[in-house]
Design a protein around this nucleic acid. Sequence first.
DNA 1: TCCTTATATTGATGAACTTCGATACAAGGC
DNA 2: GCCTTGTATCGAAGTTCATCAATATAAGGA
Lengths: 104, 104
Amino acid sequence: MKKIATVSCCAPGSPPLRDREVAGLATRFKALADPTRLAIVNRLAAKGETCVCELNFGVSQPTVSHHLKVLREAGLVDVRRRGTWAYYRLVPEALRSLAFALGG
Amino acid sequence: MKKIATVSCCAPGSPPLRDREVAGLATRFKALADPTRLAIVNRLAAKGETCVCELNFGVSQPTVSHHLKVLREAGLVDVRRRGTWAYYRLVPEALRSLAFALGG
DNA sequence: TCCTTATATTGATGAACTTCGATACAAGGC
DNA sequence: GCCTTGTATCGAAGTTCATCAATATAAGGA
């Protein structure tokens, strides 16, 4: 479980960020910077915890698995395994911290 | 001047997005998915309208120019030219719409 | 045990990205 | 006109990324 940094980068009056903070934010924005991953996140937001088998968006199974790994490593999603199946869900605090960074 | 779409992708209960909406959001997140560009945005947020000549973050002048173009095309920044100088500033609505998309 | 099924990992390929040096453009001063 | 200066564009090099087919792993059922 990685700690979620809550910094503000982009709202008017945001203080200057350290290199590490900038890099961390960039990593999490990068996780959202792909249409397939955004579609996955959007589906998880709409339906809550969802089976991997329902997260196919016109790409192959290994590609889905790869994107889920990117989202996991960015701390944006969690996985719960039940037998052979895996169920993913959003980590709301992670998304909220990004919204806060943008000034939401 | 491009219109800013205000959709919600990632907050719990967000409705499913169309492909075009997903692609548009991905493009804007991609603009934030680079440390140099995030540093530029952070500086603009901290200082307001700023001369290009103050936006060097250890990269060459053509690289700064390239990143500013990416941010411009994503609609995240605006430019105002005064003679030979160019002054960039954030487009607050664009950043707010991204924060909204994340559920802020 | 073997077989099937769901997901993850590996390895390769082609596309996209970041970066730079060189060059072009545009504005002001001479 | 020419020169200087700030910014943008071009072209190339190296890196990262998205994607797939093939394979591996892991769990359940026969």
